[in-house]
C-alpha cells in the first residue's frame, strides 16, 4: 500500500499483571492497516486478538510500543482525548451486541451521534437511513430484547458505522450467531466496506468470516504469525462463475 496507514503499530507489547503474575498477551506486534481494508485477525483463543483490538480502539494502553491512529501517537492522549478519539474515529461491534437496553433500536443507533453533538433532527434522519440500508428499519421503535440476536448485531453494526468512523473494530461479531445469520452479517459489512468505504478489522476465529476478508492476519501467542492479503472467497466464486 502506498497511502499512509490509517493505523500503525510499532512493536506493541501488552502484559497483564495479576497478583505479581505477569501474563504476556502481545509480544511485539508491528503492523499497518489502511483505509478501505476488510481485515480479520485470526488465531486461537488466548492468542491476543481481542487485546490487540482493544489497544487499537484506545480502550486499553500497551505496556510497550506505540500505536498511531492517522499518524497521531495514541500514548500521548489523555483518557478524555482517547474517549474523543473513539467517538470521532472508531466504531465498535462487540460479540455480545451490547446495545443499551432502555433505548429503542433507533435511539441505540443514534446514540453515538448524540454523543457527537449532532442535532436531533439530523441524527434521527441519519440513524433511520442506516437502519434502512441494513434492512432493519422496521425495528426502529423496538427495544433490543424484542428482536433476535442477528438483528441486534445488525443494530450494533448500524451504531458502529452511523458516526462515519475511520475504522470499525469488531470483536468476534459472529460468535453468537448461526451460520445463515453470520453470512448475512458478513455480507452486510462487506457492502458497507465496498459501497461506503468503511474500514473493518475483525478479531475472529470464525472460518466463515476468514474466507470473506481481503486481508488475514494470524496471531499466535501474542505475535503476528502470518499476514496475508487474499482474494475473498465470494469474489473467487464470482470470478469462477463468470
Amino acid at each position: 500500500m502506498s497511502s499512509s496507514p490509517l493505523i500503525q503499530t510499532l512493536d506493541v507489547k501488552k502484559t497483564y499483571v495479576t497478583e505479581s503474575v505477569e501474563t504476556p498477551a502481545l509480544r511485539g506486534v508491528s503492523l499497518e492497516l489502511h483505509k478501505r481494508e476488510f481485515t480479520a485477525i485470526a488465531g486461537p483463543s488466548g492468542s491476543g486478538k481481542s487485546t490487540l483490538l482493544h489497544l487499537l480502539g484506545g480502550l486499553d494502553r500497551p505496556t510497550e510500543g506505540e500505536i498511531f491512529l492517522q499518524g497521531q501517537p495514541m500514548s500521548e492522549l489523555s483518557k478524555d482525548q482517547l474517549a474523543k478519539l473513539r467517538l470521532s474515529s472508531i466504531g465498535f461491534v462487540f460479540q455480545a451486541y451490547n446495545l443499551i437496553p432502555v433505548l429503542t433500536v433507533l435511539e441505540n443507533t443514534a446514540f453515538v451521534l448524540e454523543l457527537q453533538g449532532v442535532a436531533r433532527r439530523e441524527r434521527i434522519s441519519r440513524a433511520q437511513k442506516i437502519l434502512s440500508e441494513l434492512g432493519i428499519e422496521q425495528y426502529a421503535d423496538q427495544y433490543p430484547h424484542r428482536i433476535s440476536g442477528g438483528e441486534q448485531q445488525r443494530v450494533a453494526v448500524a451504531r458502529a458505522v452511523v458516526g462515519e468512523p475511520s475504522i470499525v473494530l469488531a470483536d468476534e461479531p459472529t460468535a453468537n450467531l448461526d451460520t445463515a445469520t453470520s453470512h448475512d452479517l458478513i455480507d452486510l459489512m462487506r457492502r458497507l466496506n465496498e459501497h461506503k468505504g468503511a474500514t473493518f478489522l475483525f478479531a475472529t476465529h470464525d472460518s466463515r468470516l476468514l474466507d470473506r476478508v481481503n486481508r488475514l492476519i494470524t496471531l499466535i501467542d501474542g505475535a503476528v504469525a502470518e499476514d496475508v492479503v487474499q482474494r475473498p472467497a465470494d469474489a473467487r466464486i464470482e470470478a469462477a462463475a463468470s
Partner: peptide, 16 residues
Amino acid sequence: TREIGLILSLGASRAH
C-alpha cells in the same frame, strides 16, 4: 456497570 462501560467505550466523556 457493563452498560456504563459500553457507553464509555463508544466515546462518551466522563462528564457525560
